[in-house]
Amino acid sequence: MRIALFATCIVDALYPRVALATVRILERLGHEVVFPSGQGCCSQMHVNSGYLDDALPVVRNHVRAFTAADYDVAVAPSGSCVASLGHQQPMVARAGGDEDLARMAESVAGNTYELSQLLVDVLGVTDAAGQLGSWFPHTVTYHPSCHGMRLLRLDDRQKDLVRSVGGLDYVELPDADECCGFGGTFSFKNSDVSAAMAEEKIENIVSTGAELCTGGDASCLLHLGGAMSRRGTEAATVHFAEILASTQQNPLEISGPVELSIPSPSSRRPCPPARPSTPSTPAPTTAPTADRGVL
């Protein structure tokens, strides 16, 4: 299949490794991945901040880029951005009086899948270890981001994929379905409430003893990871695409200072030994050599 990658603006600019992870998973399955170069953003930041007029050119651009490109289906590693395509773009177009654009936006949205949707519903992947060779020997918990859960109704697709990764020790997150407090511009317009919500989420994450909290939206993970970093929390966040992409031959490294850049081929390291995954022995913070790819 020819699959168009909608990287989303935040992954494109801040988390290129998440986009690359998406590409690696799909290429491994024999699919061709294309990147429509005209793509920008889904417009969610503008819409959710109340700037519908400024959202309109962003919507127009997305629809143009994904209408012009030649592909079978499109995929994005974000529940929130995919939800925005279907729930917001047609609304923005209609508010701007452009019915044609609204219909085209609906058509693009109808053929764009969130990563776990594509893997489970379209490609029939339900066993990450068996079908993708995914291997990630760490203790992981999972936060279901709100828009994937409530707008796309992803149910347990992301979680089930993560649980089926080889070597992975999965622990359930208490009150998992509560919002992490990101909410786009909410996070700085109402920063105190947002931080209090993050605090509660982080307490729950820490209570699981997991080394990492994964999820399907880089924005929520940026917010949670940033708050964890500020508090000196041992745990960190990582996008589930990176966990699925991780294999025994090319494992995702999680120790060392944060590094969001795509590693150059020469810096690839051999497979590290699995770390103990007991909750009482958190990972050393000042570890040594390799850069970690977690958020």
């Binding site: 494109d12 986009a19 990147f35 996070s187 700085f188 993050a198 940033g226 500020r230 590094e259 850049s261």
Partner: peptide
């Protein structure tokens, strides 16, 4: 300024050297 509302409570990790788009090219 306004972005301070973010960094009052959270760090931002160092951005990558290159965006995905530019790397992919």
């Amino acid at each position: 300024g306004m972005a301070g509302g973010w960094t009052d409570e959270r760090d931002i990790p160092a951005p990558p050297r290159e965006s995905f788009r530019n790397w992919w090219a």
